[in-house]
């Protein structure tokens, strides 16, 4: 089986993140890390590989040259190869264009399963997996908390507003996983050593071949920093804070 895992680098969520006020794009000048949700997606693929020798896991990404660090990490966790689409023309690409490029890259790999995170921690729009699936004319099983992968199908469990559901799709397919899916492993020292010898392919858009035309695009009109919240009232509990808080909630018609 061959599995593609879609990954991206995002600004560290532990740091203050900002948008460029002119372009409206996420400021990526600071420390960027492999998105945690992508590591979980990779973990889902690696667990299958651990149990099924002969499985090949390829991480696929689009991004600037600093992305190498994240891809090397994925390789040291156990992915077999990495494919990076690197092209200045892709700077600031929206979800539609990103999905079109990733779909093209994945198509060139002829994989059985594409695993993605359900949504990135920066964009959070969560639409890329479905768009990739549509480009590839593959079924999609999204937002899975638990995944059972086999030679012929994927079984998955998803949380719903009222509980959960189990569903299946035949392979080949695209799946996306939530942060409940799998705790990602650490890379290992041996993994770091062997990652050096693994293949990291870099391609430009031109090398990818024909992108689907007519990938609808969006444009950003304005970006405003939200005003800081005005300072609120703060009390120190001297035995009566519960009552004072109840009073506050009542007076503001909050209950």
């Amino acid at each position: 089986m061959k599995i593609a895992v879609l990954v991206k680098q995002v600004p560290d969520t532990g740091e203050q993140r900002t948008l460029d006020p002119i372009t409206g794009l996420v400021d990526r000048r600071g420390e960027n890390v492999l998105d945690e949700i992508n590591e979980r997606a990779l973990e889902v693929a690696l667990r299958y590989k651990d149990a099924n020798k002969g499985t090949e896991v390829v991480v696929v990404s689009m991004g600037p040259d600093t992305l190498t660090k994240g891809l090397r990490k994925a390789l040291s966790m156990g992915a077999d190869a990495a494919l990076q689409v690197l092209d200045d023309a892709l700077a600031g690409a929206d979800a539609g264009r990103t999905a079109a490029v990733l779909a093209c890259a994945v198509r060139s790999l002829a994989v059985d399963v594409v695993v993605a995170g359900n949504e990135s921690t920066d964009g959070r729009s969560g639409v890329v997996p479905a768009m990739v699936a549509e480009h590839l004319s593959l079924p999609l099983l999204s937002a899975l908390d638990a995944v059972e992968l086999s030679e012929v199908e994927v079984l998955g469990q998803r949380s719903t507003a009222t509980g959960s559901l189990r569903a299946s799709v035949p392979l080949p397919a695209v799946i996306s996983v939530t942060e409940r899916s799998a705790e990602a492993r650490f890379p290992s020292f041996k993994g770091i050593m062997t990652a050096k010898r693994k293949v990291l392919t870099v391609m430009s858009v031109a090398q990818l071949g024909q992108l689907p035309g007519n990938t609808g695009q969006t444009s950003i009109l304005s970006t405003l920093r939200s005003p800081a919240r005005p300072a609120g009232r703060r009390i120190v509990d001297e035995g009566n804070a519960g009552h004072e808080l109840a009073q506050f909630l009542r007076s503001g018609s909050l209950i």
């Binding site: 993140r17 900002t18 948008l19 409206g24 007519n214 609808g216 695009q217 969006t218 444009s219 950003i220 009109l221 304005s222 970006t223 405003l224 920093r225 939200s226």
Partner: peptide, 10 residues
């Protein structure tokens, strides 16, 4: 933290 307004081009 930010409010972004956007539109579509197609």
């Amino acid at each position: 933290d930010y409010t972004v307004k956007a539109t579509i081009t197609s």
